[in-house]
Design a protein around this nucleic acid. Structure first.
Lengths: 151, 151
DNA sequence: CCCTTGCTTGGAGTGCACTCCAAGTCAATA
DNA sequence: TATTGACTTGGAGTGCACTCCAAGCAAGGG
């Protein structure tokens, strides 16, 4: 039974430092399936990330298989966070390009992240305001239920 | 110059009770373009919402044009909130069905909203944890920038 | 030697949430 | 009467982020 290609099972992933998945070995060359187990992404998605330029040039074995480093796992953790907060893939690719271009892009990277931080703050505010509406509506339904139980 | 069909301009909408758009008239029969102005949705989207069963049967004039009520606007405000918090359209349609079916669906509606509230809470937690990462990275870049300015 | 496992590739397909199109109706104005 | 503008419909198209497919290769076990 292989561990590969299973759907992410609506994988709001139990990612990284969380619980189950420490770095597979202490070593620094992980196969794609190890990375799948670690990140909750599918192998398809990892290959796709690389194709579109969202990975910092992954190393290969002499037979052409990918070998990911701890640095790659760190990067994927960051990408996962940005993704969960709704940053478009195109923006993440842009950020990856800036990283590849070197230290003279620090300012632009800072801008990009600052803009995204502002987005995230707005999203939080939206979610909180919806939470109030939900609380209120749920209360109304709960009251109705209790009233009907108390007949 | 028509007001219709303009793109939502990345419309994190300034919706409802917020600022600019009070209920168009004090009356209770709004044309589709009035609702567009009020909600920030496009006319396309409003018609699509109706087609898929996400609206509570919108009234028509004798010539077949839609006339929305204040109740419809309230509903659209709720839908907007649920949408911004990432509830899938299918779930919103399910909720709309329950509303149409009457008061005996109160319990199921409460369940659906409670489940979504839990999602929203998780999303908020995710966003906050990302915010910390962003703050940290932005600090690092800002420090680097200040260091290079202070040469 | 053959089979299975684990991986490789480019390209095609999927699901969601819109978004747009073509063709038409109706009411009001020029 | 002709045109304009706001609206109608069913169905087709779009963009995003995956998701999968077919064909193939290398290494190890029976």
């Amino acid at each position: 039974m292989t561990v590969m290609e299973r759907a992410p099972v609506k994988a709001r992933n139990t990612c990284a430092e969380d619980t189950g998945h420490p770095r597979p070995t202490g070593q620094d060359r992980y196969s794609i399936s190890e990375v799948v187990a670690h990140t909750g992404l599918t192998a398809h998605t990892l290959r796709w990330y690389e194709r579109i330029g969202l990975m910092p040039h992954v190393d290969r074995t002499h037979t052409g298989q990918r070998r990911f480093t701890n640095r790659d796992l760190d990067w994927l953790d960051l990408v996962g966070k940005l993704r969960l907060t709704g940053m478009p893939v195109a923006d993440m690719v842009r950020y990856a390009e800036l990283v590849r271009e070197g230290e003279h892009t620090f300012a632009e990277r800072e801008e990009l992240l600052t803009a995204h931080r502002e987005n995230v703050r707005e999203r939080i505010a939206e979610l909180r305001s919806t939470l109030e509406v939900l609380d209120h509506k749920i209360d109304v339904y709960a009251d109705a239920r209790r009233a009907s139980e108390r007949v």
